[in-house]
Simulated scan of single mutants.
Amino acid sequence: MGRGLFITFEGGEGAGKSTQIRRLADLLAKEGRQTLVTREPGGSPGAEAIRHVLLSGAAERFGPELEAILFAAARSDHVEQVIRPAIEAGKIVLCDRFMDSSRVYQGVTGGLDPAFMRALEKVTVNATMPDLTIILDLDPEEGLRRAVARRGEDTADRFEKETIAVHRQRRDAFLEIARAEPERCVVIDASRDEDTVAADVAAAAARTIAAHKQLVAPA
């Protein structure tokens, strides 16, 4: 059995990552491909426990360094327990957020030292790099409006509560990552209707699958 693929989805709040991951997973399943859908922070039992601490804001008062270390601990467990075994089993792993979110949320808007962030990333990712990163790009004001509509009466999480200026800074940071790593990243305009966005996501995934000849064809 050949090596699988690792596709990550990134973007700001309300960009539609969960919806587009679900749609791509359904499409790949119809093609007969084995997929695994997961998320960060979380995705494994240990990481899910850390997710609650992070999104509740309980770790915020200890500063961005501790938050980054907690994200790193969650990611390490997630990679070793879930992501890497699935890729080695020939599956296509679809992950809602990965290392780029740490680069943006803790690194750029958290103001952490780039060398510190690179060291954390190297240890936690442990060479398990995405084959494709889809960045769903959306104006932050529209993204937050969508996030509020989706959430309903639930409480906003730690990151949704931050100022619009911070959200704009994050959008710019994701776009800068895409410019710096065009061989890995594809930016998709998420302001359009869901079907149009899904078609672009499917096309990007198809190009990556076609480029990886070692991926076993569906039965």
Rank of each mutant, 00 (worst) to 15 (best):
G42R: 15
C185I: 11
G11T: 06
T208D: 05
I177S: 00
R192I: 04
R39Y: 09
I135H: 04
A29Q: 12
F98M: 14
V166Y: 09
Q34H: 07
E162T: 14
D195F: 10
A210R: 06
A205V: 04
F9N: 11
L120E: 01
L112Q: 11
R103E: 14
S76T: 11
E40S: 03
A203R: 12
E162M: 14
T163I: 01
F116V: 04
R103A: 15
A147K: 08
A204R: 10
K161M: 15
G4A: 07
L36E: 12
G42K: 13
N126Y: 09
V197E: 09
A198I: 02
D189P: 06
A74S: 15
A173Y: 09
A178W: 00
S18N: 10
R171L: 07
R170Q: 08
G42H: 07
D139Y: 02
D195P: 03
F71V: 06
G42W: 05
A127I: 08
L27N: 04
V53L: 15
A72C: 09
E65G: 07
A178S: 03
R3M: 12
I92N: 05
A68G: 10
V201Q: 04
A180G: 04
G2F: 00
G152Q: 03
I188R: 07
P45A: 13
A89N: 10
I87E: 04
E183K: 15
A211E: 10
T38E: 10
D139F: 00
L136W: 06
S44P: 12
E142A: 11
T163V: 05
A25M: 04
A72Q: 02
R97M: 14
H167W: 11
E194P: 01
R103Y: 02
P64H: 13
M129S: 13
I69R: 09
A89W: 13
A210Y: 05
I87Y: 12
L215R: 10
N126A: 14
E141H: 06
E162I: 13
A49L: 12
R103F: 07
R171K: 11
T133F: 12
A49Y: 09
A149W: 02
A202G: 09
A178L: 07
G46H: 04
T208L: 12
V216E: 13
L136N: 04
M1V: 13
A115M: 12
V123I: 15
L112V: 01
P182Y: 00
E181K: 11
G143N: 03
A198R: 01
G14S: 06
L70E: 05
H78T: 03
S76Q: 11
R145G: 02
F174W: 13
K91Q: 13
G14H: 01
S76L: 11
G143F: 03
V53H: 08
I87S: 06
A178T: 02
P114F: 10
D154S: 13
G16Q: 09
T155S: 15
R97E: 02
E153T: 15
N126L: 01
H167A: 09
